[in-house]
Design a binder for these strands. Structure first.
Lengths: 204, 204, 204, 204
DNA sequence: AATGAATGAGCCTTCATTCAT
DNA sequence: AATGAATGAAGGCTCATTCAT
């Protein structure tokens, strides 16, 4: 005989999580107090600790939720039966969308988590790795199908794409909106030649 | 009537700045106390406030110093009389070098400043803009010389390059060292075709 | 209309009391939370407050229960038809036993209650007084029978005996076990001459 | 060039220490907040931490100061050239005095420290051991001079004396004053026969 | 009757900043 | 000019107690 319904508990948790996401995004991890979050969630300070072990745990929950929410779509795209270039475009498009939609969580991840001393080997890094590995999978299948140069350096490509999107979106976050379609296309356009398999190359 | 010489004052300032750079880099902005910095600089807490208005100002000074130190070389490179591709390579190479050498300051910038609510329009953003504009200048001259597609989207290229380097270097910071030469070459290789001016393009 | 039987209520109360005794003994009063006790008693936090007014009240109940449990035996001993020395020995022996058996409650009493600002005049003090008065009664009967000096200072004797046992047992609590028989005998041996009625005393 | 004189710093430290002693004695360790102490010492909360590492450290300082203040006299007494009984009386007398004078510290020691889980092996226990060892030394010299039974159990005697004094004084703390002279004499009187070396003993 | 979610006061501790020395 | 003692405002977190369910 639970005192409140499971639904209500979930709602509470969600509202705290949402408040935390926004507050963290606005003020950073250190710059946000539990009191801030509690106030935004219209909840007492103490209650936050009934749902999350501590402030750090709350941050991790925010990021985990973000990754899980985003990852499903990406898996679908990667598995589609389409040309390499098409899938590359789609995944970039989807990734930008995610960044734009969840600009808060992205900013949070970039500024607070990846920086943390204990990021290496953390569960959040696992999620990030799984996230980026989807792109790697697409490139690998492009190599297999002969569409992509086999000597391409995978990690460089990964960093180019994610780094570019991060920078792009970042600027957009603080100002005029980003044209997702144009950006996705432009990025593919910029990279396709460099990725393409080609007969020979006259050294530079 | 300065009781200590201007030189001595400058030295004081420098040693505080250096201590701050290292301390911030190691512990982040919030994780570093003025007392930490003062101790490292072998100076009293109070004296820090004679040279810097407050903690935030000290952080800005650290980053300004970093930018200024790095910028000079870049200007030289951009002004060189060499092919577009050569200069693109050189500037990327130089930028990676800066990131690797001053990984601390870079990390600081990424995690603490760009995030700040007041980053937009801040002097630090001015510096960052000036920094990236050097790359833009090179591309523009490439367009002028016919080496680069005139319809290239400048900001996208900028974000691709800086974003990629940031990601690349970041990973390197926490692990195995980065091969600067290989990374610079790989990046140029990946982008050159996308940048190159070419007669026509068969739509995708 | 009691929805649960009186027996069941008593059981509930007892299990909470037992859980409290153990928890308090292990962690002290301040170091133990109601939640700890409730968990150990397999009961909800709120229910504790149906049986005890508050945390302090629960502590008092723990100590009251301890005193009542121990006191009966002592009354029996004090009433026995035996020599003064025999009864003195027996009551000391029994007291040490109680301390050893209920080391937890003793420690609790010593460290948490006697200290309390409101100890003077509290019900717990009444119990303690009744407890020690049993010893006083034995000594008085010793005086009456001529076995004990009539000018003995009662309270001093009381404090010597209880203080000694407390110290002895305390050390034993944190280390090697206490030899109850030897300690009881040793204590009687040490005190009997001082207590004994004797013809005269050559001033010191 | 210290900002304030060493004397003034010492005074500050002393006033915080004194405030802590009183506050702890009145309310116990857990029952006293740093804010309470700071207020009593007419000092800011933060300053307490400039003089003491943390709350526990402050408690230890209170007790250490008490022991050191008391110990010197005892050493002198133990070393005097007097009869065993005289020295026993003197040390008991002195010990009671200390308890009466520093009732606060004593109560504190009894209720908060000896109880602590980490008491065994702590510096405070060392002090306590040194304290009680003075009595042991006196007894040993009594044995050596033939004044005390050689088969006496040292630790029992120690616990009898200290336990008795503790109990005695405790009662006095919360009520009518204690007659130190009478108590010391009474205690010696009570124990002297049990301690005395004697030719033979008619078994009980 | 029983639960445990919710509250909110309170605690220890840190630290940017000020200012008497 | 330089020091570092002093301040006091937070902040993360715990927990006794209440009360809707």
């Amino acid at each position: 005989m639970p005192v409140i319904s499971a639904q209500k508990m979930q709602d509470r948790r969600d509202s705290i999580l949402a408040a935390a996401r926004e507050a963290f995004a606005k003020g950073g991890f250190e710059g946000t107090s539990i009191a801030d979050i509690a106030r935004a969630a219209r909840v007492s300070d103490g209650l936050v600790y009934r749902y999350f072990a501590n402030k750090r745990d709350l941050l991790n929950a925010v990021l985990t939720e973000f990754y899980e929410r985003t990852m499903d779509d990406l898996d679908v795209i990667a598995g589609r039966d389409a040309s390499f270039e098409q899938r590359l475009h789609d995944i970039i498009h989807r990734h930008i969308e995610a960044f734009v939609r969840d600009a808060d969580a992205c900013r949070l991840f970039i500024s607070e988590v990846r920086t943390a001393a204990d990021y290496q080997g953390s569960p959040v890094q696992q999620l990030n790795r799984r996230y980026t590995s989807i792109l790697v999978r697409i490139i690998e299948s492009g190599i297999a199908s002969g569409e992509v140069r086999p000597d391409i350096e995978m990690r460089l490509v990964r960093d180019v794409i994610f780094g570019a999107i991060e920078h792009r979106t970042w600027a957009a976050v603080n100002g005029r909106p980003l044209d997702i379609d144009a950006t996705a296309k432009g990025l593919v356009e910029l990279l396709r030649y460099g990725l393409m398999a080609r007969p020979k190359r006259s050294g530079r």
